[in-house]
Nucleic acid binder design. Structure first.
Lengths: 203, 203
DNA sequence: CATTTACGGTACTCATCGTACCTTAATCGG
DNA sequence: CCGATTAAGGTACGATGAGTACCGTAAATG
C-alpha cells in the first residue's frame, strides 16, 4: 500500500474546514472590508467552494460577523492608575487604538453593511464592547470609593459619556484616528466637569 | 392643423424631467430606503428610463443624495423658552422627531449605504445639520447671558454633548424613536450637571 | 466492508448596476 | 417655416456577485 492510514487527508472536514473558511474571510475583510468581501473569493482562498460556506452560514453578512468575532476576541485589562482621570484616559486611548486598527475599520464597514438587519446589528454592537458600560462603572466605582466622585455618577448613561463622544468623532469625521488631544479634551472639558457637576450644589 | 403649437408636449425635457426623476427617487427612498432604491424602478416610476437618469447623475448614490437633499430642505426655528433646560429639551425633541421621521430613516440608510465613499459621506453629514454646533452655542450663549451658565461652556464639544448622546441612542439601539424620558434623562443626568460642573469649584 | 455524511467541482438562476445604440420628439437658428 | 441639433424613449446587453442545485467522491462511522 502506498498510502498511510490517517495521514495527509487531502480533504478537510468539520472544524478544520470551518477554521480555514473563517481565516480566509478574516483575510478578505482585512484586505477589502465588508463591501469587498466576495463569497467566491473567500471560498477559493480557503481552498474550497461556496457550498461549504453556505452549509455553515446563511449569507454573506453572517459569515462576515462570524469572522469578525474571531478577529476581535482579545480584550484589554482594566486600567487602575489610582486616579479617575488616568483611568478614563487609558480606557479612551484603548478604545481609540481599537477603532483605529484594521479591526476597527472592519467593524465600521460591517456596521454600515448590516444596518438594515436589526438582528445582526444588535449582535455586532454587543460584541464590539459598546454595551460595555460595565468597565466604566467599575473604574467609576473605584473613584467613588476613593471619594473622588459622588455615588450619583454610577449610572450607565453618565458613565459612558466619554466613550460615546469618542465614537461620535469616528462616525462624523471620517478620520482613521482621533488625535490624543481630543481625548484629553473630552476628559477635561466634559467628563471630569460632568462628574464634578454631580456633587450636591451647596444650598 | 389639428395640433396646437406649444400645447401638451408628450415628452418632457430638462428641468421638468429632472424634477420628475427626483420625485420618483424620493418616493422610492420613502418606500424602500436606500438599499431598496432600484434605478429601473425609479426610471419607470418617473415615466422614463435609466438613460435620462445617468445623463444627470453618475450613479445610484449620487441620485439618492440629490433626492434626499430635496426632501430635507426645511429647518426648524430655534427654541427660546427663557430657560436653558427648556431650550435644550426642545432642541433634543426636534432632533428626535427629525431622526424618527421617514426622512430620518432615509438619512440613516443613506449614511450606511455610502459609508465607503468619504466624499458623499461628508456631503451628507454637512447637510444633515450634524455640524450644527451653531444652534447649541446660541442657546448656551443666551443661558450665559442670563447667568445660568458660566462662559467656559461655550465650547463646541461641550455644547453638543446632548445631541451626540441622542444620536448615539439611534445608532446603537436600532430603535425607530427614542422615548422622551431618555431625552429628559440626558438633560437632567448629563447635560445640566455638565454645565454645573463648569463653575469654578471653591478652593 | 457497506453506509452515511459532507466536501469539491461546476454550472446555473436571478437581480441589478451601468453602458451602448438607435429611433424619434422637441427646440432652435436661419 | 424648415432643416439641424439636442435630448428623450426603447431596448438590449455586459458585468458582477449572491445564493442554489446536482453529482461524483473522499472521509468518517460502525
Amino acid at each position: 500500500m502506498t498510502e498511510e492510514p490517517t495521514a495527509a487527508p487531502t480533504r478537510r472536514r468539520g472544524a478544520a474546514l470551518e477554521q480555514a473558511i473563517l481565516r480566509a474571510a478574516v483575510d478578505e475583510l482585512l484586505e477589502s472590508g465588508y463591501s469587498g468581501l466576495n463569497m467566491d473569493k473567500v471560498a477559493s482562498r480557503a481552498g474550497t467552494n461556496k457550498n461549504a460556506i453556505y452549509r455553515r452560514w446563511p449569507n454573506r453578512a453572517a459569515l462576515s460577523i462570524a469572522a469578525y468575532r474571531q478577529l476581535s476576541a482579545a480584550s484589554a485589562p482594566l486600567p487602575d492608575t489610582g486616579e479617575l482621570r488616568g483611568d478614563v484616559l487609558e480606557l479612551l486611548r484603548g478604545a481609540n487604538r481599537h477603532w483605529s486598527s484594521p479591526t476597527g475599520d472592519i467593524l465600521r464597514s460591517l456596521l454600515s453593511g448590516v444596518a438594515d438587519d436589526p438582528e445582526l446589528l444588535a449582535q455586532l454592537h454587543e460584541q464590539s464592547g459598546d454595551a460595555g458600560s460595565g468597565m466604566w462603572l467599575t473604574i467609576l466605582g473605584r473613584a467613588v470609593a476613593r471619594g473622588e466622585a459622588p455615588p450619583e455618577v454610577l449610572h450607565p448613561r453618565v458613565a459612558t459619556v466619554a466613550v460615546v463622544l469618542l465614537r461620535n468623532e469616528f462616525v462624523t469625521r471620517g478620520v482613521p484616528t482621533v488625535p490624543d488631544n481630543v481625548l484629553v479634551e473630552i476628559v477635561d472639558e466634559v467628563y471630569l466637569p460632568l462628574i464634578r457637576g454631580h456633587r450636591r450644589t451647596p444650598d
